[in-house]
Nucleic acid binder design. Structure first.
Length: 590
RNA sequence: GGUCCGCUAGCUCAGUUGGAUAGAGCAACAGAUUUCUAAUCUGUGGGUCAGGGGUUCGAAUCCCUUGCGGAUCACCA
């Protein structure tokens, strides 16, 4: 923010004037004043005592005096030991308010100006419906996309669908041995129907393994020769040979899954600019391997397999092509990275993928760097921790996986119940009520998953997630509704009077609001939506304190009232925009 | 075994590039509403920032080390 630059410049001047020594502005650091002290910014003088050759108190006092008489924005200063607390004038804060309360671009930053970024997220398998873990991925991916857009990037979102391989053949085989039910005949969402057959496959398969073991066959062997898995593998071979019947079944079941996913995406409010399918990309990358062999980046073994040696980088030797010439996972990703660059020419490429693939992405980036690909340095793995339940890890085998669609329904019902109890929705139509419940439910769920820093493993506590008090989405939504309620009957035009006095709670709220640009910038630079989420909470809390302490519409002094209304408008704008960056809607009434 | 990540109040989490007496929410207890929405606000209690060492005016934050939890190191994806 500009004021910080002004202050650091003044402080640098003061060293020159008072102690006759030049100090780099970049070495002067300002921080927020601790709440137990009076002031807005604090300058710590300890590192500069060598220059002043005075005691901390004397140094702070001298600098304070100098900058106060040389900067109109500073109304006062105080110091405790080496901490120089600088107090900005009410006029400064009101000028800030005046300049920004009606500025719809407030909070934007320029870190991505002129650059393009691709954000890959969701990236599901087509054999089962989405669960809680996918939700964290999708919400993170969507939110970081919004944050990057707000930071000046051109954002291209991408979904790389894993639509081929043994997992989908398992569902296909199980379905083929069933009675031919469809989403229509079963009234099941397509992804759930396919998921049902995936589970069914697994049941049969395990039963077969048990039976084989009873006959004295070893576990490893049983897993290989069980009839189901053999059939599924045969199906995969047929698929790879383009067998028309198999392809038709594969297409049919995948379509079911896609229409199911689309419903879930729509409900979550996300969509993608590009879809990539592994069935189209799984053969890519081999050319790049040949290229790398010529460059000497890869090594070919006698059996024909191709490797890269990353031991110098502290990693291992990694296979990039099998002896029979077929691809492995990383080969595909090398090819897909090339394809993405061909399509989008992006400066940065973000992969929202769980932290179990940290190693994989480290290797991928390293390989592409060694191949001197222009897009290699722009690769960033937005890694996130697993979502645990109070009972421990989610395990599909034990049926403890939290289904995304069911979870959203439960949240919706809870929102409806609680909203009904509060009885503030007179005059709402049924449609409006349903929209409101959905807004609150999604707000609660999204906020709950986004407020935790991505790198951290997190706990999903069902009871806590439907609590709408405290640090929650609905709390912030409620704050917005309160502001809307104050602003709804405004008709007169009004202005900000920059010479009026400010109440302490107003000043504190303004100070928080002034940080919005900082926060969006930091969130974009560190790919971290939780910074925005926690900031939203800070704003809401500060506003609620003001709302409680001061009357807005009842304020008798016209200038104070108008200033306060402008604060409401700015608060509402920041909340609405910030929540939008998280993919959360805010209601005017709730 | 190698590598990576995490560890902050009973529980869930914040804590900008190192700064003053480490903060919120939930839970517990005590209060506040003739008023612009009480899904709110105020207060009380609650801590060896996993342990130890180092760097320095100053460390939850940086470095080393130990412990605990998790992940990963496949001719799987």
């Amino acid at each position: 923010m500009e004021i910080e630059k002004i202050l650091t410049a003044k402080i640098a001047d003061s060293f020159n004037e008072l102690f006759n020594e030049k100090v780099l502005e970049s070495s002067i650091k300002l921080e927020k004043t601790n709440k137990d002290h009076i002031g807005d910014y604090t300058f710590v003088v300890f590192p500069f005592l060598r220059i002043s050759k005075q005691k901390p108190e004397e140094t702070a006092n001298a600098i304070g005096n100098y900058i106060k008489s040389n900067c109109e924005f500073i109304s006062n200063f105080n110091f405790v030991k080496g901490f120089l607390n600088i107090e900005l004038s009410d006029n400064f804060w009101l000028t800030f308010l005046k300049n920004n309360y009606n500025n719809s671009d407030f909070g934007k930053n320029q870190v991505g100006k002129g650059k393009t970024v691709m954000v890959e997220y969701s990236s599901p398998n087509t054999n089962k419906p989405l669960h809680l873990g996918h939700l964290r991925n999708i919400l993170l991916g969507y939110s970081i996309s919004e944050i990057l857009k707000f930071s000046g990037y051109k954002v291209v979102s991408a979904n790389l669908i894993n639509d081929r391989g043994i997992h989908i053949c398992k569902s296909m085989h199980a379905w083929a041995t069933g009675n031919g039910e469809t989403p229509e005949s079963s009234q099941l969402k397509g992804d759930h129907l396919v998921g049902k057959y995936y589970v069914e496959f697994d049941k049969t398969y395990r039963k077969e393994i048990e039976e084989l073991k009873k006959k004295g066959i070893e576990d490893d062997e049983a897993k290989k020769i069980a009839p189901s898995i053999v059939k599924a593998q045969q199906m995969l071979v047929k698929w790879e040979k383009n067998d028309p019947e198999t392809i038709a079944l594969w297409k049919k079941m995948n379509e079911w899954v896609y229409s199911g996913f689309e419903q879930t995406y729509k409900r979550l409010g996300v969509s993608f600019d590009k879809y990539y399918y592994e069935s189209n990309t799984y053969l890519l990358g081999k050319d790049t391997i040949t290229e790398g062999l010529q460059q000497g980046v890869f090594i070919k073994e006698n059996d024909g397999s191709v490797w890269i040696d990353l031991t110098y980088e502290g990693l291992d030797r990694k296979l990039v092509l099998r002896a029979d010439g077929t691809s492995v996972y990383i080969t595909q990703d090398i090819g897909t990275a090339q394809l993405k660059y061909h399509d989008t020419k992006m400066d940065k490429s973000i992969y929202v993928v769980g932290n179990e693939q940290d190693y994989h992405f480290k290797v991928l980036k390293l390989i592409l760097q060694k191949l001197k690909k222009p897009y290699a340095d722009g690769i960033y793995h937005l890694s996130y921790g697993m979502v645990d339940l109070p009972s421990g890890k989610m395990k599909s085998r034990e049926g403890t996986v939290v289904d995304a669609d069911e979870l959203m329904d439960e949240m919706h019902n809870t929102a409806a119940k609680l909203t009904g109890q509060l009885g503030k929705t007179d005059g709402f139509s049924n449609t409006e009520l349903n929209n409101l419940y959905e807004t609150i439910a999604m707000g609660a769920l999204k906020y709950y998953l986004l407020k935790v820093e991505p790198v951290k493993r997190m706990l999903f506590n069902p009871e806590e997630s439907i609590d709408f008090h405290g640090n929650t989405g609905p709390f912030i939504q409620y704050t917005f509704a309160r502001i809307s309620s104050v602003l709804k009957n405004l008709n007169s035009t009004y202005t900000v009077d920059v010479s009026a006095p400010l109440h302490q709670t107003e000043k504190e709220l303004l100070r928080s609001l002034s940080l919005f640009t900082h926060k969006t910038k930091a969130a974009a630079q560190t790919y971290n939506p939780s910074l925005i989420a926690n900031y939203m909470y800070e704003i809401a809390k500060n506003f609620n304190r003001l709302y409680h302490d001061l009357s807005i519409l009842g304020e008798q002094v016209q200038a104070l009232k108008e200033n306060r209304l402008a604060i409401c408008i700015l608060s509402a704008n920041v909340i609405k925009k910030g929540m939008q960056l998280l993919g959360i809607k805010v209601p005017e009434r709730m």
